[in-house]
Simulated assay, not measured.
Amino acid sequence: MAEKIDFDKLNFEKFRELALNDDLSAHEKVGFPNSYREDKEPLIFADMVKKLTSLEGKGKTILEIGPGCSRLPAMLADLCQERQHEVLFVDSTEMLALLPDGPHIKKIPGRYPQVPSLFESYTGKVDVIIAYSVIQYVFAEGNLWDFMDQSMNLLRDGGEIFFGDVPNITMRKRFFSSAAGIACHQAYTGTDQLPTVVFNQLEPGQMDDTVVLSMLARARSQGFHAWVLPQSLDLPMGNRREDILIRKP
């Protein structure tokens, strides 16, 4: 069955349109087919929380960039309420309208990092920044280094940035070149077809190993720790996506 939207042609403006489309599920509004996210969000959230030690404690400031409107930002809001954290959501007005309200929740409309009020009030004061399944759109249509630099500038000492669910085309190719990847592809398609994998070709707009490793190098060269972390294999795309964690010492 054909999908209702083209998941390969998404950007900030398209997500604004999706937020207003009442024919779409919450998963589809944030750029995923239902089959990829249905019943998986608790697993995704648990994996993320396990990696972010700065979420522990009480009274911290948490920023989520591009939260969308799925259950993930709602779960984050619940955790922040429980731990007496302030949570900042930065997204389009259309997406923010679909998120819960609360005294500990602050919604900041805009296309990050073009949100001056955020930087005027919170530079050097944020404990955790989360951008989950967002960085690929920044890479394709924005300025990745400016996005990273400005995010690192918001952190207080000991603060962390979590760029989660990063699609890596090279990682995907490695997986689908393996016996496990071939079996996965054949089970998904119900055929004996081999997946098409081509190395050493130009793929504009796609993140690959060079981009991921350059992100680590940039953070480290500016005095931050940075790591690539594997996703739990029970996550929807844990075999072909990974996470980046940056920490200010």
Rank of each mutant, 00 (worst) to 15 (best):
C69E: 00
V198Q: 02
A180H: 05
N34M: 10
V128R: 04
L63H: 08
F45T: 02
A187N: 07
P103A: 13
E13M: 13
L233K: 12
D22V: 00
T210S: 07
S151I: 05
R111K: 14
I182E: 07
S117V: 12
P249K: 02
L18W: 03
A187K: 15
D165I: 04
M215Y: 05
V228I: 08
G57P: 08
W145E: 15
P67Q: 06
V87W: 12
F32V: 02
E242I: 03
S232M: 06
V87R: 09
L194K: 06
L235Q: 04
K248N: 02
K173H: 10
P249G: 12
F119C: 11
A179V: 03
L216Y: 02
D146A: 14
K248V: 01
D8A: 13
R240F: 09
P230M: 11
Q206W: 04
N168Y: 06
P113M: 11
I129A: 07
D208V: 11
R241W: 02
F12N: 15
D234S: 05
F119H: 14
G159W: 01
I5M: 05
E160L: 08
P116W: 15
Q222G: 13
E94T: 05
E17P: 09
K58C: 07
F45Q: 13
N11D: 03
T210H: 01
P195E: 08
P109M: 15
P195S: 03
T61R: 13
L99I: 14
D243G: 06
F224M: 07
D208L: 08
N239F: 06
S54W: 09
L20C: 13
D234T: 04
D157N: 12
K107L: 07
F32P: 01
D146N: 14
W227Y: 14
L118W: 05
